[in-house]
Amino acid sequence: MNALDLINYWIAMMLLVTGLYIVIARGNLVKKLVGLSIFQTSVYLIYISPSKIIGGTAPIIAPGVELYSNPLPHVLILTAIVVGVATIALGLALVVRIHEAYGTIEEDEIHAQDQDGE
């Protein structure tokens, strides 16, 4: 098996680890959400890649067509994209409120303000 055959999975895994790293390593609340979004997107690729067969078409019975792609993962991922959008939207709304309350969106500065308050 050629290593390039699995390139979809290599890309998906790299995105997954990149996203997770950004979430952990960055202190800026918006950048964390960007990382989270990349992390979620990588999972979409993990679902979509195996369901696409090269040369396969939509699963409609027609004469002369014998190779079909599985439509279910695509539908599942449409749902997952909606969930992802809602999550990021809510996260950004929270960041706006945090900015109003603290005047900053840097994690360490927020932490410092909370320590002073106590």
Binding site: Q40, T87, L90, G91, L94, R97, I98, I110, D114
Partner: peptide
């Protein structure tokens, strides 16, 4: 509460 909710959002989504 906002920060707690944000942290939960990040960890919950992961």
């Amino acid at each position: 509460a906002l920060v707690a909710s944000y942290q939960y959002l990040i960890m919950g989504t992961i």
